[in-house]
Amino acid sequence: MLLDLVAALGRVLLGACQSAGSLALFALAGLSHVLRPPYYPRLVLAAVAEMGFFSLPVVALTAIFTGMVLALQASTALSRFSAESASASLVVLSVTRELGPVLAGLMVAGRVGAATAAELGTMRVTDQIDALSTLSTVPMKYLVAPRLLAGIIALPLLVVVADILGVLGGFIIATLKLGFNGPTYIVATLNHLETADVTLGLVKAAVFGFLIALMGCYHGYNSKGGAQGVGAATTMAVVTASVLILAFDYVLSELFFVR
């Protein structure tokens, strides 16, 4: 009875190690193809457009509303300590360090991670990936490498926009609703904004973009079993990307911000 339990636990652990291993190998293979020719600049560009440009509306809306609610809550909380004046710095730090990269990442994971997994998964189950390799093309290089590279490029660009709009959302509420003085708020924001916060937020974004593309590609590329398998791959891509984003967010914050 107890042995059964231990055996089951062992199987789960072994399975987890195996998946982690094959994922790591997949990531390494994908990255090595990013570096070696032939390159597919047109595919990278298309993937950047898909991940960056077409995600702009949803990320912009998320960022603005987040900035707005943040300013609202910050001033309520800070007023208890008569420290409302700190809300500008709270908004800008939260947005650039955490909320910009994390929320943009989660939104893009839902949009692009799912679409990538569905596209590659369909290509897998309809033999299109096999067809690529019979047509002098390495599927990892043609399908996976451009998307990984695009993830690393596109998400930081999106996060720049998200940072600006998030702060703008905070500014709107602070000045229009909470009675802050506009110029004072801007000066306070700029005073508390450090280059390190922004750059490290962008590093996070690059990591998240890579993770989103990796999860979409990995689950799509290895999907099997027809439409149902593609559906499962899509779900897995979004769920694993979201969890990894939050986990890596903690790890990176621990590494960079806590001194």
Binding site: T126, D130, S133, T134
Partner: peptide, 19 residues
């Protein structure tokens, strides 16, 4: 890759690239 470049394959379901 060189060997594959000399191979042509028609898949049972076509496997055309729909993009």
């Amino acid at each position: 890759a060189a060997a594959r470049a000399r191979i042509g394959m028609l898949f049972q379901n076509g496997a055309l690239f729909d993009s």
